[in-house]
Structures are given as structure tokens and as C-alpha cells.
Design a protein around this nucleic acid. Structure first.
Length: 278
DNA sequence: GCCCAGGTATAAA
DNA sequence: TTTATACATGGG
């Protein structure tokens, strides 16, 4: 039985905004407002009270690991002030969900979950990811680790049938094989020039610009990444006319998450824009 | 039945 | 090079 770990003086963090906003698909909200999930092969429950972040079922020596996961080393208040100056609507979006942080997820997990995300919805993505871990992940105390690329590389798309991932099954196998063989080296994507990192990831079948950008942002902490999906296209056209992803600066990824969340919560802003798309 | 979901591969223009 | 369509599955 492991002890709880407490990290004090945590600011600019809201668990719901951060864990349930579509950047990670492995956390579930509990009735008491805490969240249970698995990262780094460790099953934990996290709760936040005032500035005290409590991580249940985590040993003291994992403090640095969870501190890093929640990106507590970055001053998000400073980031919000900086990016709020770029555009008044961005300022409003940042104020709307000031507790969003960009998690530092494991690269391979981020890659796989965003392959699964394509032309899919968050609820079903979570189901597929959950079944992937249950079927092929290492059993751990309290759940299942995310399966390794090596394990998944030995599978066929037919083996993944129980996931009901549809056409994405073969993409997952291709990703696993290229990562396991070293044809794609995820860690290199941390420091490669951005477009080269994109290209590296796009060697994988089923990985286009959007999945590559999400992998870079959420799995490799390239916070200059600005993934553009259907919502972002609408948001840019409607709320930020004349602006392109490159105009959002060195913290573009954080700005993107504020805008993504704000857009999802205000679909009425895009009603007119939606009609014009057709 | 139809439409949509944090897109991409593939074929056709 | 740009544009159109299919793709598996499940919920509304």
C-alpha cells in the first residue's frame, strides 16, 4: 500500500479543464470530483483542494514525475498574460478556462490516442483506448499500463478487432512497428526543427498534419504546435479573421487549447460559419 | 435512415 | 497540385 503524494502551492490548474478537455483520454472523473487514471504505468487518483494537489497511490519518490506530468514548472499565469495581448477574443478564451495546462504525456501513448482520434468523438476514443490497454497493456495495481510499441508491433490489425477501432487498426499497427523498429524515433521529435519533426511522425500511415501536431504538443511538449481541426478552422475563420496558426507565438499550443475549449463550449458562435462551409 | 465525430489515404480532376 | 470521397463505429 503506497502513500499519498501532496504537491503544494499549485496554481493555474483545474483538473476537469485539464484532464477532460480532449488532450488525454485515460482519465475518468469520480463522483467526488477527483480523477482516476493511468500514466507512466502507474494507476493513481488525483484531487485538488485549494493549491494542494493530492496524488493517491503514488510514492513520495514520484513527485518529480507528477510535477512534470502536470507541467507545474511553467508559469501559466505568465503565459496567459502574454498570449492575452495577441487578440481580445484569445484573452476572453484564456479567462474562460484558466485552469487548462498542457500535460506532458508519454509520446507513444499520445501518438496512438490521436491516431484513434481521427474522424472520431471523445467518448468513443476513450472506449477504444480503454480496450486497447485492457487487452494488450501490462496489468498493474489498479488498472492497465498503456501497451508498449514492442508488444503492439507483434500484432495484426485483426488482433485489434476487439477494440472496434475500425479503419484505424492498421494505422496503430503501422505506428507500433515503425516505433519499435526505430524507423521513427519519437524522442528525436523533441528537438528537431518543427517541420522535420512533423515529417518524422508522418512516416506513419494514418498520421497527417493534425495527428502529428497533437503528438508533438501533448506527447513531446512542443508547445509551439497549433493543431488545426474542424473546430479550429471554424474558430480561426469566425473569431480570428486574418490570423494564422503561426501568429499565435511560442505558446501557440496553450492558446490553441484555450480556443478549443472555448469553441466547444460556445457552438452558437459558429452556427453561421457552419452553414457557409457547405 | 441521416448526420456527425480533435482526419487521412486514395483516386480523380 | 488541388479537390472529392470512402473509411468503421456508435450516439443523437
Amino acid at each position: 500500500m503506497t502513500h499519498s503524494l501532496i504537491i503544494s502551492n499549485v496554481t493555474d490548474l483545474d483538473l476537469a479543464q485539464t484532464l477532460d478537455c480532449g488532450q488525454s483520454f485515460r482519465w475518468t472523473r469520480q463522483p467526488d470530483g477527483s480523477f482516476s487514471g493511468v500514466a507512466f504505468g502507474k494507476s493513481v487518483n488525483v484531487s485538488l483542494d485549494g493549491g494542494r494537489l493530492t496524488i493517491h497511490n503514488a510514492p513520495k519518490e514520484d513527485e518529480a514525475l507528477w510535477h512534470d506530468y502536470f507541467d507545474l514548472g511553467l508559469d501559466y499565469g505568465m503565459v496567459r498574460r502574454q498570449i492575452s495581448g495577441l487578440h481580445p477574443v484569445l484573452k476572453e478564451a484564456a479567462q474562460y478556462a484558466p485552469g487548462i495546462r498542457i500535460l506532458r504525456q508519454e509520446p507513444y501513448e499520445a501518438l496512438c490516442t490521436f491516431i484513434i482520434s481521427q474522424n472520431n468523438n471523445i467518448k468513443r476514443i476513450k472506449g477504444i483506448v480503454s480496450r486497447l490497454c485492457e487487452h494488450f497493456g501490462e496489468p498493474i495495481d489498479g488498472g492497465y499500463a498503456f501497451p508498449t510499441a514492442e508488444r503492439m508491433a507483434a500484432l495484426t490489425p485483426e488482433d485489434l478487432a476487439p477494440l472496434r477501432a475500425g479503419f484505424r487498426a492498421r494505422y496503430l499497427v503501422d505506428a507500433a512497428q515503425k516505433v519499435a523498429s526505430g524507423e521513427v524515433v519519437l524522442e528525436n521529435c523533441r528537438r528537431l526543427p518543427y517541420e522535420e519533426a512533423q515529417k518524422e511522425l508522418m512516416k506513419i500511415t494514418g498520421v497527417g498534419v493534425k495527428v502529428a501536431d497533437c503528438t508533438l504538443l501533448f506527447g513531446l511538449h512542443r508547445i509551439e504546435a497549433f493543431p488545426v481541426d474542424v473546430w479550429m478552422k471554424r474558430a480561426l475563420a469566425t473569431l480570428f479573421p486574418g490570423m494564422s496558426p503561426a501568429d499565435f507565438g511560442e505558446y501557440a499550443g496553450i492558446a490553441q487549447q484555450y480556443i478549443f475549449h472555448y469553441s466547444r463550449m460556445h457552438p452558437e458562435l459558429f452556427a453561421e460559419n457552419k452553414k457557409l462551409e457547405k
